[in-house]
Write a protein that binds this DNA or RNA. Structure first.
Lengths: 349, 349
DNA sequence: AGAATCGCGTATAACGTTCTCCACTACGAA
DNA sequence: TTCGTAGTGGAGAACGTTATACGCGATTCT
């Protein structure tokens, strides 16, 4: 007996089972679960005992129909970006000891794919969303934020519907330029991500980084030496940009990038052209990911405190979800330069 | 009018709205959504038009209560492991064009935390689960698999309740040993992850890898030269193991590891001790992640075809979810050695 | 011609929660 | 005594979907 073929579901323990087992009403159990008002200590104990005994866990989908799901959704384009891993760690750490679960949607770089993923998260009734540098149109994000508490990480554009966490990328670019200039470099090129893909974001990290670069170069009287190239933040993107820059008539003596991984692509290009780092070319990454610290790599980079950004974002989001704050806010972090072996004084030969 | 304070939910479009708008029953719309049997072309068209017009998207939580959620949950310990990123890419690619959404739970290394995450995924009514080298007890996984279709990636233990995708790690270890022996090495050490944490898995990737190493060493008559060290698969874990091995009385001339990132920790230790790679020490990683291919790294490694493992896992899972298969199956991939600049012939001085 | 079957559409009972009301008991104040 | 009111517990109506069961007209089979 007990249909063997059925295969699935040996019957979940439901709130009704708990109620029956404890000899109380379903409503009472629900109250205890949500520690709502109007429950006597005696009731508490009885119900908790029953819950423990039956190993009851609430059914999130059912919860999602009426109340909250206790789930936070995180959107990112690519798990491979180590900087995102830092952010995730921060988010997880902040939420680990609460009752929330973090679920990650890795959407890839295609804006349409990202939009689909955002919708998927919303459809699954996430209590709140953290969007890491979304490539979707701003309008789409604003629409989402109107219905679900949302924190945007990366884009400097602020809005009164969603919270933001950013890094002062302009300052970061300044740090790098200052460092390189102090080493005697003047021909300093910047490799950053391609500009906004017509998606209405005015102040993406790239844009702000580029602005910071320009400002710093001007400050040092090097306007004539500015050179900005665009490349995807990947090994391959960096490689191509590196090839172009380094085979130009007047190649730069130093290259700074918006991402460590792109810097390593440039490293490969330099290598292939017989140039040594740092003797023939100083190279600077961004984000100070684990990549940059590897023994054979030793890349000078800018630390963005991804961990802190993540935990701030999570904290801000929960405030909103739980209704403890109803006004949008922005948090900005200050970057720090980490000098390693990939930058050195300009040879004066 | 239109309460401004409320803040949230401007009312979702529901299946009822669609039904009313199309002038049909709710049941009909549901049928169209699930392309179930018993719908005329005319009905199809009418309903689809209404869906498009109202931009209707089904409410996943509500779906979860009766039927499926069209969501696949993936458990992994750490997003930072580039090999997992390969697997994820494979999963996503396989599922991208279907109707399923992939949600990732990053649980960390603590088995208890992982168990919590698995439960969270089950509570959220995932249609199927992909567990990447779970650290949870085998019993827990079997219990989960009994209720939800599950694919386990990594562990070689098979069961008739869940599917498995593995790499032939023993073969992989053999490839490395053969390669190193052919270069003249005899003192070849292995650095792999610490043994099973009393969680009932008998054939974890580490175990199988170690067995392969032992077999290969014996085959070459090098039983007396075997040396196995345990270390966490992280830069730091590798560093410590490297320090121990390389400062021993009779240091190995070649070290092979179970993960690229650990190899890079050993690289750092070697560097710190003034040893050059590959001249003073040949070093081999595992998984052939993007790390190994980086220009400054150039690590010899074993390619596991993570992408393919991911897509296989996804395909197998969907078969189960959709009931097209009711017997467990295992898939095993064959690894391939990728020789780079971190291994060279033993100096005979 | 009557019976059986098929094709298509609909009504409606779940599914497991949450949360608003309502009811009841005690007790203190008027 | 009567009336409030604070403190508890419970009834029951949602929530949006799926899927079973059924009805009904049209076709095919004896």
């Amino acid at each position: 007996m007990g249909g063997p073929a059925a295969g699935k579901q040996n019957k979940r323990v439901t709130i009704t089972d708990v109620a029956r087992h404890a000899g109380v009403s379903v409503a009472a159990v629900s109250k205890v679960m949500r520690n709502a008002y109007g429950v006597s200590p005696a009731m508490q104990e009885k119900v908790r005992a029953a819950i423990a005994e039956l190993d009851y866990r609430p059914h999130a989908a059912a919860r999602g129909m009426r109340g909250r799901t206790y789930t936070i959704g995180v959107l990112l384009d690519n798990v491979r970006n180590a900087f995102f891993a830092d952010i995730l760690d921060g988010i997880q750490e902040e939420l680990r000891h609460g009752e929330y679960t973090v679920l990650i949607g890795a959407a890839g770089f295609d804006p349409e794919e990202q939009a689909k993923t955002i919708r998927a998260l919303v459809d699954r009734q996430m209590d709140g969303l953290i969007l890491i540098a979304p490539g979707t149109s701003r309008a789409e994000v604003l629409a989402t934020a109107a219905a679900t508490p949302t924190v945007v990480i990366g884009h400097h554009d602020s809005a009164d519907t969603h919270d933001s966490v950013v890094d002062a990328d302009d300052t970061g670019a300044g740090l790098v330029v200052d460092h390189l200039v102090s080493l005697g470099h003047r021909d300093i090129a910047l490799v950053s991500a391609p500009g906004t893909r017509a998606n209405q974001w005015k102040r993406t990290p790239e844009t702000v980084l580029t602005a910071g670069y320009r400002a710093a170069m001007e400050r040092h009287g090097l306007s004539g030496h500015m050179s900005v190239h665009h490349a995807a933040y990947s090994d391959d993107g960096g490689f191509k940009a590196g090839m172009t820059l380094l085979t130009a008539e007047q190649p730069p003596t130093a290259i700074m990038t918006g991402a460590d991984v792109a810097a390593l692509g440039i490293y490969r290009a330099a290598h292939e052209l017989g140039l040594r780092i740092p003797d023939d070319l100083s190279l600077v990454g961004y984000n100070n990911t684990a990549l940059a610290a590897l023994a054979p790599v030793q890349l000078t980079s800018v630390d963005q405190a991804g961990h802190t950004m993540g935990s701030s974002a999570a904290r801000m989001l929960i405030e909103r979800v739980e209704g403890r704050r109803d006004r949008a806010m922005q948090t900005s972090m200050t970057p720090r330069l980490v000098v390693r072996a990939s930058t050195t004084a300009l040879r004066t030969d």
